[in-house]
Design a protein around this nucleic acid. Structure first.
Lengths: 202, 202
DNA sequence: AGTCTTACTGAGTACCTACTAGGTATTAGC
DNA sequence: GCTAATACCTAGTAGGTACTCAGTAAGACT
């Protein structure tokens, strides 16, 4: 992580990996602002300090750029969540009961999200946009929802139905996040979640 | 309300009011599918069986078309909700305690929404898109959120904090609706809400 | 120093964007 | 049946869209 922002306009030829990281970072921000339909390759290229064909050289197409952004996020999120809970990444989802509880995971998730509003907005916008079946991220988000429901549901102790609880937890988190994003200065996401969690978990 | 769907392609000259209704109906569907950034006047015109200038003759501009759609929805929703609760429209929000309870309003809302997935999607997509400050519906949704919080919060009995509860209720509804929209065939919105409401309201 | 790889550009394609100006033709009122 | 209002069209503007092709030059390897 060197300086990412003060990019040089005058002929900055970067190694592919670094340029790709920059492109994904910029795209993440722009999708959060305008959605995927509203994203233009021109804008991405401008913010990276290169031309549109130069951008396409790295990402191939607009659709595959979106996929790259999503995959990058999932990877980073899993890594961060694991370290925040003090659990090795490969044990994050495989272990069912005992290792971590659902309230713990949620608290960690919310606290992480509270620090990166742009990423949260990216997912909020794409989550809604991708409801349309022909959206390039439609399948991705459908699979993601299934994955989240099963993995979170597995953390719920037997008496209650795991999927139902997971569904409510996810709904509440998503909804609170949107309210927070609309009014980030006066709405305290962490406090709102903790209050809601008190009600939801018995 | 005559037949709205089988529109005639061959020179159908409609009175302004009727054409406007059709335009709003079509636009509602298309925004639900693609968002506002992804909406094109050409598509709206095509689905109405007229040209783009013909469309602009009625709505003026793309932005004002969006405003018209939103205003139309609010109006229709208020009317429907009032009749579903057996309350006159003007008394819907003005009366605080006693007339209707929060769980009642929520149950009515969810049941109505369960019957119009396209409208729900319209709001889900626009709600996320309009988080960006330069979105034409940004102010509208900010005002809407404030309005909903105060009016729903006023229905909560004194011991609890109205705005907090309202915030949780709205979050849960929004979140469950998205999950439902992603999987409308197997996800039962009304059942999911009733289960969640049981947990949330004591 | 020379070769190979590759990050990147300039020019161009085919098409879509919202929107305007000015006109036509259908309808409503008298 | 005439006139006025208006629903709608054709043509055009100025600009944006993703993407392709062929070439240039910077860096790495030998």
């Amino acid at each position: 992580m060197k300086r990412a922002q003060p990019l040089r306009r005058d002929r900055a030829r970067l190694p592919a990996a670094e340029r790709r990281r920059q492109i994904i970072e910029v795209t993440t921000r722009l999708i959060a602002e305008r959605g995927f339909w509203g994203l233009s390759m021109q804008d991405v290229a401008d913010d990276c300090g290169l031309t549109v064909p130069g951008l396409l050289h790295h990402v191939g197409s607009k659709d595959s750029l979106l996929v790259a952004v999503l995959e990058h996020r999932d990877e980073a999120d899993a890594r961060s969540l694991a370290s925040q809970l003090g659990v090795p990444i490969d044990r994050l989802w495989t272990e069912g009961p005992g290792l971590v509880t659902l309230p713990q995971v949620c608290a960690a998730l919310v606290r992480r999200n509270a620090g990166q509003p742009e990423i949260v907005r990216l997912f909020a916008v794409l989550e809604a946009e991708s409801l349309a079946p022909d959206h390039p991220a439609h399948d991705y988000f459908q699979a993601r929802q299934r994955r989240i429901m099963t993995t979170l549901g597995a953390l719920v102790p037997p008496p209650a139905d795991g999927r139902t609880v997971a569904s409510q937890v996810v709904a509440l988190m998503d909804g609170l996040q949107i309210q927070w994003l609309r009014d980030p200065d006066t709405f305290d996401l962490v406090a709102a979640w903790d209050a809601a969690a008190d009600r939801l978990f018995r």
